Amino acid sequence: MELVILLLIQLFREANFFLYCQSLAELIPYFFANNNVNYARWLPIYYRDMVTLEQKHPQLAQEFQSGNFVVHKSSRQFSAMAIDQAHEQANAVIKADGGAIGVTEDPSALRRWMIAGPEVSHLVAQYEAACGTKEGTEHTSHHEETERAQRVFFENEKSSHKP
């Protein structure tokens, strides 16, 4: 099971739709075995929809195969994430300042939140990037991919194996 969860993380980060479909198939038996009734009932149907997407909706299948079934938070490699996770992060940006307290109790406030929330989150991210409070997205590699970081890693690895 742990391998399937790690596979899920990898496929979302890499925006790999083929791997996504493969992992869905591997997850189905676990939901039956753990008596997760709703997932056991609906995941096989969802899986069938995903694997038949190319025949039923070829244009959408092409988009998904191009990685457009996830949210790309930056231009960095391995930074894509599932859509629901991106929504949660966008909500967290607003909630950090107390902006979402009690919003679900008032239907009109909830509608405003649903419409304006993602845009406000986007504006906050743009502001932080422009002001330098958060790192911009101009770098596309991970900080551990630098030559210095790799050299330090290998030196530490060598020294940890000395008798």
Rank of each mutant, 00 (worst) to 15 (best):
F17W: 07
L3G: 12
N38F: 14
V93E: 08
G98C: 05
F17T: 02
E88P: 01
L27I: 05
V93H: 04
E155I: 06
Q62V: 07
H87W: 14
C21V: 04
D84M: 08
P44L: 07
Y47I: 01
I45S: 00
A61Y: 09
N36D: 15
S74G: 03
S160P: 00
A80V: 02
D49R: 13
K134N: 04
R41H: 03
T146I: 06
L3Y: 05
G99T: 04
R111H: 09
N38Y: 15
I83C: 04
E54T: 06
M81E: 12
M50F: 03
N36I: 11
K95I: 01
E144V: 11
P58D: 02
L3F: 04
A129D: 08
F12E: 05
V4H: 05
R151L: 09
R151D: 03
E138C: 07
N35E: 15
F78K: 11
V120W: 04
G67W: 01
R148Q: 11
G132W: 05
L60P: 01
E157D: 12
V93S: 08
A15Y: 01
G136Q: 03
P44R: 05
Q77M: 08
A125Y: 01
L123M: 10
G99M: 06
L19P: 01
N156L: 14
S141E: 13
E155L: 10
E147M: 15
S160I: 04
F69P: 00
K134D: 00
H139N: 14
Y46T: 15
Q65H: 10
L8Q: 11
P107I: 04
H142S: 11
H139P: 03
L123A: 09
Q150S: 07
N91Q: 10
N36M: 14
K73N: 09
E138R: 10
E144N: 13
V124S: 06
Y46R: 14
P118R: 02
P29R: 03
E63C: 06
E119V: 14
I83Y: 02
F78L: 13
A82K: 06
N34L: 15
Y39N: 13
F32E: 11
A149M: 03
G98A: 05
C131A: 14
H122V: 05
R112G: 12
L53W: 00
E135W: 07
A100K: 06
S23Q: 10
T104F: 12
V120H: 03
V120A: 09
G98E: 04
P44K: 05
F18Y: 13
H143M: 11
P58C: 03
N36G: 08
G117F: 01
S141Y: 12
M114R: 15
V93W: 08
W42E: 12
L43F: 15
A86M: 00
L11V: 14
F69D: 02
F64M: 06
V124C: 09
G99R: 02
E14R: 13
T52C: 10
V51F: 01
P107S: 02
Q77N: 07
Q62I: 06
L60T: 13
Y20C: 05
Y127C: 09
R76Y: 01
A33T: 06
Q85V: 13
S159F: 13
E157V: 09
F31A: 08
Q59E: 15
L3C: 02
A96N: 11
E2W: 07
Q59R: 15
L7N: 12
L8S: 10
E157N: 10
T133Q: 10
I9S: 10
K158M: 11
A15D: 00
R13L: 08
A90P: 01
F18R: 15
F153A: 07
